[in-house]
Design a protein around this nucleic acid. Structure first.
Lengths: 352, 352
DNA sequence: CCGGATGATGTGTGCGCACACACATTGTCA
DNA sequence: TGACAATGTGTGTGCGCACACATCATCCGG
């Protein structure tokens, strides 16, 4: 027996009404008598009607518009990879009448974020994908989306208060722990108490929760390990002399065994380490400068945040929600991928 | 101007023929006059007609059947994860009239593979996903598929001679190199020449190319590193006394610094290492027994082959090919994922 | 008592394509 | 020349749904 799919027509016949009435009940539009409504509903319950989403999109020929609110940074490879992910997804969903409208803002410019977000609001898209880099500003925007009942997905940075239908990214706390473990790997047994450093480079810590979380994880690991100390260094301007001095001072510590850079700027540290002492170094993201130092051995490990897959997955989630009414995972946490010299190539080939 | 999508109807009008004729030209079915054909083709060329695949599948109500030829091993977590991946994909593609028909064979039984494969052939599916574990047998089957013009995708194990429309898996050679690197990490500087072992457990090496490739990569790495030696051990029966003896002998080597298990059976080694000396240990796959030892620190790293994603990706590739006529990557090589204690959880949450 | 407003429901059309079928035209041979 | 194939071409229908529109009964005020 081929289990036939039940259509609106079937429901109508079984309830003894017309398909028009079923349609009205299903979509709660128009008016229907109490009697007809209950008849349809009872049939609906026992038959488990599953609408054919393909046919749905075909008929009305409606267009779904997804707005993407991500940084535009031609010089930042991380966000370039993100944009590639958006393109991937746009390709995949082109068959359904689904278009992606990019709204861009500048890194390090929270006002431009807010401005772009308001442009999104005005466009009234069917869904939004956003990278809420600025926490306080994002919180305000999110409220608007909620009011307008526009479903949205957040990637990269979590807004704990409200992530929309889904947050796609990584567990920052665990990421910090992982970084610590990777540094600790090189720890020689039976050595005197060692110290490790965590560096926040080029980002406003107070407005970026994930950095705080990373540090918390990093410190927790070493607390458990014992006999080690952790120092924190925050640097806004890499070009200034202050950075060089701080770093030199750090490297001057004889007990220093490793450095964890919480952002994607590990190459800045590797660059200065060349002339000085070599300590273990862990950072983030497959930027070409980072890769160079990884290959040279100055960076020991990189943790891959996979922006490309985050972005495409974000659009996928949103599209599935809009087209197929598929509920999304509230938190879609990506694996914390460890990159070394020998598995690097396998990542470049596939994701990047 | 909203760039309208051009339909068959449009082509017909512009070519001055009926949609029936356009249909015949497009699908090369029925007979058409030279004149009509060329008229349609010329319009087709300049208009870049893109068929609406959604509507295509809607009308005829045709069903697409994908056969999956993978091991059935209720006690083997690796293949259980694979089956989950198949289910994932089946869910995703349920909207299109696409069904997955499982054909199962037994691990360690090449005859059952051939038998199941012939059952697939008889069923004449629209596409096949297979894990060609037995190289010689698979080669024979592949020829049949090719003759019957049934598109197929291979996962997990590569048949270099012919992979169908796509092979999805990992680069085994590089995987061996990575394993070597991970073992070498623990190498203390300035120690006397060390030796490393590679163990093939429970598989017929000669009929499994990927194991040979892994060993080749493993050896190449240490050759480059210098001052190290590599020993190979092949073990078919883990329960026998021979295994225990060989392993004890291995662990007796004072120069031994690490062991690489080329299959998913690293836990067998870890288990015997408890009473003996601890050396570095690298293996494959997130089996619960392996995870236990990873957490305990007896296994240092696991390389994740991501069977679940391989399987779902395989069906995706096939479905995209069948439904959307989307060409597939010939070799879709997955990243070589390094699992440690601290990133393990992030993998369990997402992929597994 | 009839026209118009209103509520409840049924009917029809189109989305883009595949495919079956009907029809027109020509050629062929008894 | 009429019967009949062979060949080319056009028309019609259905897929499942959304949505506009048509229909019908009821009720109310003038």
């Amino acid at each position: 027996m081929p289990e036939k799919t039940i259509r609106i027509k079937d429901i109508a016949r079984m309830a003894g009404v017309s398909i028009g009435t079923v349609d009205r009940v299903l979509h709660k539009r128009g008016k229907t008598s109490q009697e007809a409504t209950s008849k349809v509903l009872s049939v609906l319950q026992k038959m488990e009607y599953k609408p054919n989403f393909i046919a749905r999109n075909l008929g009305s020929n409606r267009e779904l518009r997804i707005a993407t609110l991500v940084p535009h940074a031609p010089s930042d490879e991380y966000w370039i990879q993100c944009e590639k992910g958006l393109q991937d997804a746009a390709n995949d969903w082109g068959h359904f009448n689904l278009t992606i409208e990019p709204y861009l803002f500048e890194l390090d410019n929270s006002a431009s974020f807010t401005k772009a977000a308001h442009a999104v609001l005005k466009a009234k898209p069917d869904g939004v994908l956003m990278a809420p880099l600025f926490h306080t500003e994002a919180l305000a925007i999110v409220k608007f989306f909620t009011d307008e009942a526009i479903p949205f997905v957040t990637i990269n940075t979590e807004i704990t208060e409200c992530n929309g239908i889904s947050f796609i990214g990584q567990n920052a706390f665990q990421s910090g722990r992982l970084a610590a473990e990777l540094l600790y790997l090189r720890n020689l047994p039976g050595e005197e108490p060692a110290s490790y450093a965590i560096l926040h480079i080029n980002e406003d810590i107070d407005n970026a929760i994930h950095l705080i979380e990373k540090e918390r994880g990093f410190r927790e690991f070493f607390k458990e390990a014992g006999k080690t100390s952790v120092v924190t260094l925050s640097i806004i301007d890499v070009t200034g002399a202050e950075f060089a001095e701080s770093l030199d001072e750090l490297l001057g510590m004889r007990s220093l065994r490793g450095i964890f850079v919480s952002t994607s700027k590990a190459f800045e540290v590797a660059n200065r380490m060349i002339d000085k002492r070599k300590v273990s170094l862990v950072g983030y993201d497959l930027l070409s400068k980072n890769l160079d130092y990884l290959k040279k051995g100055l960076i020991d490990f990189l943790i891959h945040q996979n922006p490309r897959r985050q972005a495409s997955q974000g659009v996928n989630t949103l599209s599935n929600y809009l087209v197929f009414r598929k509920e999304a995972k509230q938190r879609d946490l990506f694996p914390l991928e460890v990159i070394t010299r020998e598995n690097l190539q396998s990542y470049l080939g596939s994701d990047l």
